[in-house]
Design a protein around this nucleic acid. Structure first.
Lengths: 158, 158
DNA sequence: GAAGATTGAGACATCAATCTTA
DNA sequence: TAAGATTGATGTCTCAATCTTC
């Protein structure tokens, strides 16, 4: 992802894609390393905690959790398996639809979130926000939002 | 990676990180899907071809190739294994340092690159460039470059 | 039949250890 | 001893198939 040297003479535009890949990798690497070393928490686990903390009763259907985290159904099943084994989340049946399983924060999960959140916030500040001016940040977020939204297509009438 | 609802009342800044994650995922997904379906080529393979095409004699040391692609040593070994089995690259010994192995483009690798490059360029245009104005694009690339560079450790003059 | 969740099999990445050469 | 590359063991993701419930 480093063919940013010269894609073609006079084609500066397409350097955006390799840059995006490198910037993303740099952020993931930095955040995961800091969360792991300071709290023993993988970034993926932290992201689950963040989503659940913000959900209505600290719980979410497996399916919705997977969607929020950009994971497949089996992917979220296994991630919750591991976090359940670690005592950070639990599984609860749904009273109105017995096909549904909720992933729910445990007390320990909440405590872990509170402990890790400042580390993550500091990392975002250090490795992302700090490098941009206010104006850059606005433009940056605006551009990212467009790209992220572009893929959220109306699924073909399904 | 979707805790962009509200990280905290009055903290809009940190929405940049989840947006970056989603935008990156959207791009990777779109490019990989198009390259796979139209050329039967995984995005990771295409990236190897891009790097090699731009390298001096169409070849690069395994180590440098891995660095360019943000892969570990074992990661690049195995990726080249698969591409070698598919006939897209070959391995050549280095005449001056017998520890070194070069990964080199084959004729078929070059042909595959020429066939896939327009598909990739079109994808970048469609899924990235098209969504941004010139001004946005400049700001976007400038911001990304700063973030990507921030993690680039001082390469020990090697 | 379709939706939600899980399971089994396979693909691909990493770490640590190993082998060869400098 | 260190550098370059590979191998073995292991972890996590995906797809396809399955089970249960709507």
């Amino acid at each position: 992802v480093r063919y940013d040297a010269r894609v073609r003479p006079g084609d500066v535009r397409h350097s955006a894609w390799p840059l995006l890949a490198r910037a993303h990798a740099a952020l993931v690497d930095a955040l995961d390393t800091e969360l792991q070393s300071e709290r023993g928490l993988p970034l993926a686990w932290f992201e689950v905690l963040v989503v659940l903390v913000q959900a209505p009763r600290g719980r979410l259907r497996m399916n919705d959790l997977g969607t929020a985290l950009l994971l497949s159904k089996s992917g979220i099943t296994r991630l919750v398996d591991r976090m359940e084994a670690a005592g950070l989340v639990g599984r609860c049946p749904c009273s109105t639809d017995r096909r549904v399983v909720f992933a729910a924060l445990t007390a320990r999960g909440r405590a872990t979130y509170r402990s890790a959140a400042p580390v993550a916030a500091r990392g975002v500040e250090r490795h992302l926000v700090r490098h941009l001016t206010k104006a850059e940040e606005r433009a940056f977020c605006s551009a990212l939002a467009k790209l992220a939204a572009a893929r959220e297509r109306p699924p073909p009438s399904a």
